[in-house]
Nucleic acid binder design. Structure first.
Lengths: 147, 147
DNA sequence: CAAATTTATATTGCGCACAATATAATTTGA
DNA sequence: TCAAATTATATTGTGCGCAATATAAATTTG
């Protein structure tokens, strides 16, 4: 009831600005990634695959903290778009091996300036981008106490 | 191709940790809010309404940066749960006035210790919580250059 | 005052995110 | 060795988040 210290006031919520910031980022990415025909989550999966391929659904998920409920349909859409192939690992038929197609690998070149475009879309200088990276790092470190 | 400075490496993405942190937070809130029968987004709407009621869909949306595409079905679910009423403003039939029911208002008492429970679920001390608030504030400030 | 414009909410459609559960392959161990 | 436990992915169902569009009420203008 003592307004000042009410823990339920929206402007006292530590986590709401993080939620709002994350939504805002996804919105900012959208017009940029539209040019590549990718959603933000699909872009993240392609980043992971461009770094190392092939990879199983599980290893992609471990990297992005996403589970098969999210990844299975997403990967099917990437497959339907001709960007990846999905086949079972003959060594272990439980595993599904995801590999970028030639088109999917070539898309990497188109994606080169996505980070810079986003920077511009957010109206951030390189210095501010570094500040942001620092603050985001602090948030991440603090939230990784658990798992 | 010069691995070190490749702007497409996942660990060079400033925004991915923010996305991951936001997902993690929603997961952390879930078991706590389950006890109130609320999702995280519904909890945010109730916070806004507990602060000031009644409010129109538009004013709730302005506060949370959400649009009617998100809020209309969410508010219908809150109405179906008996937590709010929805009626047109007789002064301006375009507006929809959202008001907590007695049950909805009473739920506020049940929610009092949600912030503390979350803090515990994240394994954060009060000092760390303040650090987190500071870092989140920096992120918010930097991302508010645009709108 | 009527037509055009603006404003507020609703609807539709798509793609996550995730809990819960299912299925099938592999591994373990009595 | 074979039944139980474990592991990997898939499926189902719910609820966002948002772009695009629709609808209807209010406001502005000519």
């Amino acid at each position: 009831m003592d307004d000042e210290n009410d823990p339920l006031r929206l402007d006292r919520q530590v986590c709401f600005p993080l939620y709002a910031a994350s939504n805002r980022l996804t919105r900012a990415y959208r017009p940029i990634l539209d040019r590549l025909g990718l959603t933000y989550a699909q872009y993240l999966v392609m980043l992971v695959l461009w770094e190392e391929a092939p990879q199983s659904v599980g290893s992609i998920g471990a990297r992005l903290h996403l589970d098969s409920g999210t990844l299975t349909p997403l990967l099917k859409r990437l497959e339907a778009a001709g960007l990846v192939t999905r086949r079972r690992d003959p060594e272990d038929e439980r595993r599904l091996i995801v590999t970028p197609t030639e088109t999917g690998a070539a898309l990497r070149a188109e994606a080169q300036d996505v980070p810079m475009s986003l920077c511009e879309a957010l109206g951030l200088t390189e210095v501010e981008m570094h500040e942001l990276a620092g603050a985001v790092g602090t948030v991440t470190r603090l939230l990784q106490h658990d798992t």
